[in-house]
Design a protein around this nucleic acid. Structure first.
Lengths: 158, 158
DNA sequence: TATTGTTATACTCTATAACTATA
DNA sequence: TATAGTTATAGAGTATAACAATA
């Protein structure tokens, strides 16, 4: 046992020792960022098969749950600026997943709706999301997702 | 009691009901992103007083803990590409916080070191970070930072 | 031949100002 | 006068290809 450990240490010493990331691993902000990047890489890879980005998925989901809402309303709910939301909706409309309809009460607004293809895509993406979530729950330990989501929600509150 | 609830509901109905963000609040990836953005906004605002960005802080911290390491080593430890690391070090060097020195063993490499001003800046930033962390711990509840960091570390593992 | 630092470049995200048509 | 959608634009962040000096 001792010999094995010493051998391993010798191997480690042969190549330059790892860089110490310092106190960063104890900082919530830094670890939050690293975790978010890691998780999004998985999401990104899975969604690539459908040609959808995480932001587009979040927009499709909100429209699915709130058909008829205006661009400004959906954008605000997701923390996206009206101005940057235009190209997002453009892309979803061009792909035939969502559409802008004239809003009944205000002729300045566009009411957002999903197409049938959009609803089908959301269902497909949701199955992927379920698999990804299952993988993450396996990593952090079953029955600990609730804790994590609660802590993250508290950090998000302004 | 019933009357108060009804009155509140009536008020809510007066203005358009909030957009339902749907199942997104139950997704680890989405909540991770929202929390990261919220926390980084606080960090960004605090660091603005010193004119330092989060990425620059992480570089200064790693150099402080690992003086003499090469650009490639520090960049890799932080998950930053060599090619994007050049401008980062340029900015820190221009501000007199870090410096490139010829590496003793390999004339291709630059050994990174902090200046006295760089060390003083790191100390100042660390005091800010301590205050920010205290605020976050207050939000999520004392004695729960450990859980959060552990869960985030597990999600970051590849 | 491989690696370190570098430049050039492109694409995404995000942020601001200004326009138009409606309200 | 204010708001919804839009355009143009500029700044970060991140990705790839290619080059010179060195190993």
């Amino acid at each position: 046992m001792r010999g094995a450990r010493a051998r391993r240490r010798k191997h480690a010493a042969a190549r330059p020792p790892d860089v110490d990331i310092g106190a960063l691993t104890c900082l919530i902000g830094y670890m939050l960022r690293r975790a978010q990047i890691a998780v999004f890489q998985d999401v990104f890879r899975a969604f690539a098969e459908v040609g959808i980005r995480p932001a587009q998925f979040s927009v499709l989901t909100v429209i699915a749950h709130n058909p008829g809402r205006t661009q400004s309303q959906v954008a605000a709910a997701l923390g996206i600026k009206r101005t940057n939301f235009v190209a997002l909706i453009d892309s979803l409309e061009r792909r035939g997943l969502a559409e802008r309809r004239p809003a009944p009460s205000d002729r300045r607004s566009h009411a957002l709706h999903l197409t049938d293809a959009g609803r089908a895509t959301v269902r497909r993406l949701n199955r992927m999301v379920d698999r990804l979530e299952a993988g993450m729950i396996r990593r952090i330990g079953r029955n600990r997702r609730g804790v994590l989501l609660e802590l993250l929600a508290r950090l998000s509150e302004r």
